[in-house]
Simulated scan of single mutants.
Amino acid sequence: MERKVIFLVFLVNSLSITAQETTYPYDAFYPGTIWEDSGENHINAHGGGIMFKGDTYYWYGEHKGKSSKARVGINVYSSKDLYNWKKEGVALAVEDDPDSEITGGSVMERPKVVYNEKTGKYVMWFHLELKGQGYAAARTGLAVSDNPTGPFEYLKSFRPNAGVWPKNFKEEWKETPEDGDAEEWWTDEWYKALNDGMFVRRDFEDGQMARDMTVFVDDDGTAYHIHSSEENQTLHISELTDDYLGFTDNWVRVKPGGQNEAPTIFKHKEHYYMITSGLTGWEPNKARSFKAESVMGPWKGLGNPAKGEEANVTFRSQSTFVLPVQGKENAYIFMADRWKPDNHIDGRYIWLPIEFKNDKPIIEWHDQWDLSFFNEE
């Protein structure tokens, strides 16, 4: 009996220690567990992206309730160490006006904020779907602020690149074939028509579809908008104007028919890398990685960057951003969401370190890890 009591006390103490190690404040990352902010509430910043300014990281993400519909808007959190986050409030709030594009019940996903050195403005881009239209609108929304924590002012939304052909588009693709495009999906004829620009032609006048997206700022200050388009079958990479508030008409298609979603992009040494997911709705799938000498490509496939157990479903998560760690050379964090479609607010965050082996990004699972992972040996 005494042994049982001692064992029970030991077990309770062990559980207490474990709980203490995985609640605020933190000194490590615990992928897949509840991640609390300084108010001891589960961080609500799904599909997010991070911007670093001064000595502070800012994490912008979707405020989720039980469903995926926007009822609050885009939250923002701040941190000095990447482990511990303070909620700064709602950076971009839904609007009460039922005629607003960002009224409650719209869809506001994957917000990314970048700072424009020339204008002194913080610029937010996000995937926008209009209320009551499901995912038919396929637009990208734009908002700006003078402060990293907002409030951001909503400006407008786009179907990008209206009336502009991509740079890597063949002249003969600009005209619809005499016998028309294939109508039955998933046939060989349909895939050929897709590759030959069927959807680009269809959306040429009104602008191209824009769903899962990210924004990348290169070393020279040029910004790029990367988004899933053509009925989610093809990625588009578009150069933004100097003020980051519009498109320059310089854009390309990437991997037509490749079904790449959830794009992330980063630069390592002299090359650009992209990590995406496949197209399976809320269900996780095998990640993909790509490499290029220019943001505009061409992009070479490198295979699944995830390795080990559950690598075929990217550790039950989907990519959202790759974060360069400040003050550490060649240190990048793969950020992903483990979606909970039955209760979106319970979605978990999967942050894992990226390693490079044979010039390929590698992501392995860690129950617990910290930034010392990147220290040089």
Rank of each mutant, 00 (worst) to 15 (best):
F7T: 10
L8A: 15
L8G: 11
L8I: 14
V9T: 02
L11N: 07
G32I: 08
G32Y: 11
S38Y: 06
N44Y: 02
G48I: 02
K53I: 11
D55K: 13
Y57T: 09
Y58K: 00
G65S: 03
G65K: 06
A70P: 10
R71I: 13
V72G: 12
S78H: 01
D81G: 11
L82Y: 06
L82K: 13
Y83T: 05
N84R: 07
K86M: 12
A93L: 10
A93N: 14
P98N: 09
D99C: 02
E101Y: 12
I102W: 01
I102Q: 00
M108Q: 10
M108C: 10
Y115F: 13
N116T: 07
K118A: 14
T119G: 15
T119C: 15
T119Q: 15
V123T: 09
V123P: 15
W125D: 14
F126M: 15
L128E: 15
K131A: 14
A137T: 15
G141P: 01
G141E: 02
A143V: 09
V144Q: 07
S145G: 08
D146R: 08
P148F: 09
P151G: 05
F152A: 13
E153G: 03
L155T: 12
K156P: 04
F158N: 13
F158S: 15
N161K: 07
P166A: 03
N168E: 09
E178P: 11
D179L: 10
D179F: 10
E183V: 08
W185T: 10
W185K: 14
T187G: 09
T187H: 10
Y191W: 11
M198C: 08
M198P: 05
D206G: 14
G207W: 11
R211N: 12
M213A: 14
T214G: 11
V215T: 04
V215A: 01
F216S: 05
I226K: 13
S228L: 02
S229N: 09
E230I: 04
E231L: 05
Q233L: 07
T234W: 02
D243N: 14
L245A: 15
G246W: 06
D249P: 07
E261M: 05
P263M: 02
T264L: 01
T264I: 05
K267M: 03
M274T: 00
T280C: 04
N285Q: 03
S289V: 06
K291A: 00
M296D: 13
W299S: 07
K300G: 02
K300Q: 12
G303M: 00
P305S: 04
K307H: 01
G308N: 10
N312M: 04
T314M: 09
Q318N: 00
Q318S: 01
V322F: 00
P324A: 06
E329H: 03
E329P: 03
A331P: 03
Y332V: 07
A336L: 11
D337C: 12
R338D: 02
W339S: 04
P341K: 02
D342V: 08
W351N: 11
L352C: 06
L352G: 02
I354S: 00
I354A: 06
N358V: 10
K360G: 05
I362P: 01
I362D: 03
I363T: 02
E364T: 04
H366W: 04
L371G: 04
F374W: 14
F374D: 14
E377G: 01
